[in-house]
Amino acid sequence: MPHQHARHRLDGVIHAPIRFSIVAELASVDEAEFSAVRDAVEVSDSVLSKQASTLEQAGYVKVRKGYVGKRPRTWLSLTSHGRAAFSAHLAALREIADS
Rank of each mutant, 00 (worst) to 15 (best):
V68S: 09
V61C: 06
P17V: 08
S53R: 12
A27C: 00
A24H: 07
T54N: 06
P2I: 12
R7V: 09
S44H: 11
H3L: 11
Y60C: 01
S46I: 02
L26P: 00
R7E: 14
H81C: 00
P17E: 07
R71K: 04
L90I: 12
F86T: 07
K65D: 02
V37Q: 04
V29I: 01
A16F: 10
A27F: 01
A85I: 11
L90D: 06
E33V: 00
G12W: 14
I18P: 01
S21F: 03
S21H: 10
H15G: 14
A58R: 10
H5T: 08
S49G: 00
I96S: 15
E42Y: 02
V61F: 04
G66I: 06
S46P: 01
L55W: 14
D45E: 09
H8A: 14
T54H: 08
A88F: 01
K65N: 05
S87H: 00
E25G: 13
A91I: 03
W75A: 09
A97K: 06
E25S: 15
G66T: 03
A58L: 12
V43E: 14
R38G: 07
R7S: 12
D45Q: 09
V23T: 13
G12S: 10
Q57A: 12
H15L: 13
I96L: 15
A40Q: 09
R71D: 05
D45F: 13
R64L: 00
R83C: 02
R19G: 13
L10R: 08
I18T: 12
D11K: 07
D45T: 06
A84H: 14
Y67C: 06
A97N: 03
K62L: 00
V68Q: 10
Y67F: 01
E33G: 09
R7W: 12
V41Q: 12
I96A: 14
E25K: 15
V61N: 13
K70I: 01
A24K: 13
L10G: 07
E42F: 06
A40G: 07
L93R: 15
G12D: 08
Q57I: 05
R94N: 10
R38V: 00
V23C: 13
D30G: 09
S44D: 00
I22R: 03
F20Q: 15
A32N: 06
F34I: 02
G12Y: 14
I18S: 10
Q57S: 11
G69L: 11
G66H: 07
A92D: 15
A88L: 09
H3R: 15
T54Y: 06
G59K: 10
E56N: 12
V41C: 11
S77M: 03
M1W: 05
P17I: 11
V23D: 02
I22T: 04
A97I: 05
H89Y: 13
E42Q: 14
I18E: 05
Q4H: 08
V43N: 08
G59T: 06
E42G: 05
T74R: 15
A84E: 13
L10F: 13
R71F: 00
A58M: 07
S99R: 15
H81F: 07
S44G: 08
